[in-house]
């Protein structure tokens, strides 16, 4: 099994709650395909407002969502990159709490970990931390090229050692040590009789598009 297949296989059980599916994982060739799939999903789930992260690789997806979305009454908000490189503080455009108003946050991934179907995100102006936290649905559109085998590889890629020696290639991640979130499935709890309940406090659903050319 190659790493991408492994990622897909590992992701499947993470999306199963006691009450059915809490998301899906797809593989597609282009950003256009992912964009059209997201439109269909938004219609199916009667979404009204989406926010798309500022990262440039999502420009094409954001463009399709904006153009086509208006036809189905879908409003798309796009985060913007600051004109100057940030200080590392994220959520510079809106209050973190503002993200609670969206039906879904559309973001990317700075690394993908095959072994555990984990999505690694570096906080920064390119993607606010609250985007993958407060909306009930988290949508990830990420290039398959960011796939690594293990969490060890992901850490090595995202955290330069020693600092400043190599650039992990994260746009506008800011200065200082990076803030990283590894996401492995939707929010969950088993605090009541060890019974799995999705979600707990975070997103209830996680949809992932692995794109060959983004």
């Amino acid at each position: 099994m190659n790493p991408v297949e492994r990622f897909v296989a590992e992701m499947q059980p993470l999306l199963q709650g006691g009450d059915g599916a809490h998301g899906a994982i797809h593989r597609c060739a282009t950003a256009e395909e992912a964009g059209r799939d997201i439109l269909a999903l938004a219609e199916e789930l009667s979404m009204k407002r989406l926010v798309v992260a500022a990262r440039r690789e999502l420009d094409a997806v954001a463009a399709i969502l904006t153009e086509e979305g208006s036809k189905q009454g879908l409003r798309i908000d796009r985060d913007r990159m600051p004109a100057t490189k940030g200080t590392g503080l994220d959520d510079t455009f809106r209050d973190a709490a503002d993200y609670a108003a969206f039906d879904a946050g559309v973001g990317g991934a700075d690394v993908l970990v095959a072994e555990s179907a984990t999505i690694g995100l570096v906080a920064g102006a390119h993607e606010a931390r609250a985007l993958s936290l407060l909306p009930p649905v988290h949508i990830v559109v990420a290039p398959v090229s960011r796939m690594v085998e293990r969490i060890h590889d992901a850490l090595a890629r995202l955290i330069p050692s020693p600092p400043g020696e190599h650039d992990p290639g994260i746009e506008n991640a800011g200065e200082g040590s990076p803030t990283i979130t590894f996401i492995t499935g939707p929010s969950r709890t088993a605090d009541i009789e060890k019974i799995l309940v999705l979600p707990a406090h975070g997103p209830s659903h996680l949809y992932v598009w692995l794109v060959d050319r983004l």
Binding site: E10, T87, G88, L89, D90, E115, S116, T118, A123, G124, R129, R150, I151, H152, I159, A173, G174, E175, G176, S177, P178, T179, I180, T181, F182, I183, T184, G185, P186, S187, R188, A190, G202
Partner: peptide, 24 residues
């Protein structure tokens, strides 16, 4: 990280691993 969630809950990794740096 490879051993802690496996030992605690049998997960490969918990749903969220936050590594908090300068952004926050």
């Amino acid at each position: 990280l490879s051993v802690i969630a496996r030992s605690a809950t049998g997960q490969k990794l918990g749903a969220y691993t936050s590594i908090l740096g300068a952004a926050g």
